[in-house]
Amino acid sequence: MEYKDYYKVLGVEKSASEDEIKKSYRKLARKYHPDVSKEPQAEEKFKEVREAYEVLKDSKKRAAYDQMGSYNPGEQFSPPPGWEYQQQGGADFDPSQFSDFFSSLFGQQRAWQGQRQRAYAPEKGSDQQAKIEISLSDAYYGTTCNLNLQVQEVNPETGRLQTKTRNLKVKIPAGITSGQQIRLSGQGSPGFNNGPHGDLYLEVSFKADRLFNIEGKDIYLTLPITPWEAALGASISTPTLGGKVDLKIPASAESGQKLRLKGRGLPGNPPGDQYVLLKIITPSIKNDEQRALYQKMAELMPFNPRENL
């Protein structure tokens, strides 16, 4: 695994005081918090920052980290022989939130605690979280996704945490919406003392679609139409998630007018609707005959769209 320079991550000197470390952490945590940040790779950066702070804010962990001496950033690293770090109490350690580097140094805490717990009653394993991005079409029809999960497990021989990849094939039901979570019972971390496995919560979000926008279960489509279709009314073949349907455009339709295709959004009870926003496109003039046609319209159709200005 790669060595991590926690001082560099927080942008502080090795001699930095606790206050300086805290101040730098607060600034960076706000900047990269994945729920508020628009920075690229905010989530990865945020995890690094939090991990660095987790070590440097704690005088014991910081001292242990400092004792290892320095490595070059990214240099391959394994804990020094005889490395042992154990801390009384403090169960607040979720291995999925930390790097291998951190887990190899400080993760023994959880493993060690696990052993203590084994002396007691069976306990359900930790629940885990994962995210998955699917297409709108997959949400409409339902799909099966392959997940590769990085899970950290206690190595029974060394007592240290190690990362393993787990493959899971998961059914995504039709009609799921962005932000919904699927609970996969028993797919979380192993339990203690024959306790059941924890659960895995899978949060679904949607990839940007080429045509549609989505709001809850409703979908939106901008439909370009010609001025004569708008003026005369027309029946227009219109894409929906379930395939094309004929949409009746009323006569005297306006740009920006919103038409509803009931029940053509994501399935459910009730299903969502599709909203079609009409957008009148004016054709450019290609020849004299076309120019004459526009001029004829100007003569025959006196019309002032600006009378209310």
Binding site: S126, Q129, K169, K171, Q180, I182, R183, L184, S185, L202
Partner: peptide
């Protein structure tokens, strides 16, 4: 190669109890 597993959508009658929510959040 293994069968795909189905989960439950966390909503309506499959919503979480207080204990389940606390456990999910550690």
């Amino acid at each position: 190669n293994f069968d795909a597993i189905s989960g439950e959508l966390v909503q309506a009658d499959q919503a979480l109890s207080l204990e389940e929510l606390a456990h999910a959040l550690h």
